[in-house]
Design a protein around this nucleic acid. Structure first.
Length: 407
RNA sequence: GUGGAUGUAGCUCAGUUGGUUAGAGCACCAGGUUGUGGCCCUGGGGGUCGAGGGUUCAAGCCCCUUCAUUCACCCCA
């Protein structure tokens, strides 16, 4: 299927590696893993990502359920996780919930580099507090994780503050007021999204649009003193931890639920235009919007395949599964005995390889070499009669003898 | 949804202005004396040239259609 991939051994190893790196780091910060269904009622995404968002309007795989409800394959992780926390009564103002998840998401888009219809997100959610230290620790955690990966191409952290809903509303009004009279000068895309996805004009790649929006009002000017103080605290905290970052006033996120701190970790090379490897932000209103208690939260999601693309160039030296021993037969009696030995030795927990087709010793040796087998055991009539088998190290070529009866 | 590129062996690709049995490298298989890998040598298998139609005496090459992949826009992880 378009944009959906079959994944085999080598890539699986790398995926496990990246996933476990994330899990290990997240656990050190007190996060525990959560798994939620791939299918959800469409409603939670309409209420979270936003009715007008591209994800909801044209990118979801939807189905009619028997009970008349519309369900869909989750296009992102946060909404489902928050829904699960609410339903299981794990969210309250008194406690905090820290969870991470790893799993497939689905969006019906045209595939391109770093973008697939089924893709894996590694995400984390910190629910229950909105002090600035939460944001700092959360960003530090992601930075910690990414730093643990051998990503040569530098990954940069961009942050911005979208303010509280009222502040954002005022900002939007001012923005629209300024550009509505001259909207005809923008590109066609910008004209279209001016009303429903206004802030997107800020990161349009069109040169004319860019020239126009450089005179746009700054969101930071619309924050009240409390919000500004908070944003400054976050920046100070990052500086103290020596985490490099850049404030990007054009950083706007595509999902409606974000408030206050938003961020993106972008790669400067190796990925085409899909250069965000992790993104997220604070979503203080989401729990309430989904019918739960009004509790603030911050979350992030990283694109596993995008990280994999960056890792492609690196030599990872992951332990691949190579046989401890191959049992090689020299003739028919040897083959019978070899097949017996196969199970005996496997029961000791070893990975044993065996050629089922009738092949020459030379051919079996070649196979052992190809599979990077550590040792081979050679058995034929001679060995059975003398009660002595050859065990050859494929690395050194040395052969030692062992009693067949003692194996 | 829009635009561009590409589809020839398992993989990476050649294939001259349309002209006989479509090639290479790697991989794979078998040999190189008697039951022993890697290097080397020799030989071998494997392709309805993405699919369907058309032009032509003749199509891998030209035209149309379609599918797939890919890159970019859009959007986002």
């Amino acid at each position: 299927m378009k944009g959906m991939n079959d994944i085999f051994s080598d890539e699986i190893l790398t995926r496990h590696y990246v996933n476990s790196t994330a899990a290990n780091v997240f656990r050190r910060y007190g996060f525990s893993e959560v798994q939620t269904p791939i299918l959800e009622e469409i409603d939670i995404f309409i209420r979270s990502a936003g009715k007008g968002s591209d994800i909801v309007t044209k990118e979801m795989y939807t189905f009619n359920n028997d009970d008349g409800k519309i369900i869909c394959a989750r296009p992102e992780g946060t909404a489902g996780v928050i829904r699960a926390l609410i339903q299981n009564k794990l969210i309250s103002n008194e406690t905090e919930s820290k969870v991470f998840y790893i799993g497939s998401m689905f969006r019906k888009e045209r595939p391109q580099r770093g973008r697939f219809r089924e893709f894996c997100q590694i995400g984390a959610e910190f629910v229950g507090s909105d002090t600035s230290t939460v944001d700092i620790e959360f960003l530090a955690m992601i930075y910690d994780w990414l730093s643990n990966l051998p990503l040569k191409s530098s990954v940069k952290l961009l942050i911005n503050d979208l303010g509280e809903p009222e502040e954002r509303k005022k900002y939007l009004q001012s923005f629209k007021k300024q550009f509505r009279p001259v909207i005809d000068e923008f590109c066609d895309f910008c004209k279209k999204r001016f009303n429903k996805n206004t802030l997107r004009l800020l990161d349009c790649k069109n040169i004319t649009c860019k020239r126009m929006t450089q005179f746009a009002p700054n969101i930071l000017d619309f924050l009240n003193s409390k919000s500004i103080k908070r944003f400054n605290e976050v920046q100070e905290g990052l500086k103290n931890l020596k985490i490099p970052f850049k404030v990007s006033k054009t950083l706007v996120r595509g999902l409606d639920y974000y408030t206050k701190t938003v961020f993106e970790f972008v790669s400067e090379s190796g990925l085409g235009s899909q250069n965000a490897i992790a993104g997220g932000g604070r979503y203080d209103g989401l729990s309430h919007a989904l019918g739960g208690p009004d509790v603030p939260a911050i979350g992030m999601a990283a694109g596993l395949e995008r990280i994999l693309l960056l890792l492609e160039k690196e030599k990872l030296n992951l332990d691949s599964n190579t046989p401890d021993l191959a049992i090689i037969y020299a003739d028919e009696p040897g083959r019978k005995k070899a097949f017996e030995l196969l199970f005996k030795l496997r029961n000791r927990g070893l990975y044993i390889d065996f050629e089922h087709k009738i092949k020459s010793v030379k051919s079996q040796m070649r196979r052992a070499n190809r599979l990077k087998t550590k040792e081979v055991l050679i058995i034929g009539t001679r060995e059975i009669e003398n009660d002595e088998v050859q065990i050859k190290s494929m690395n050194s070529g040395q052969i030692r003898l062992e009693k067949l009866s003692s194996i």
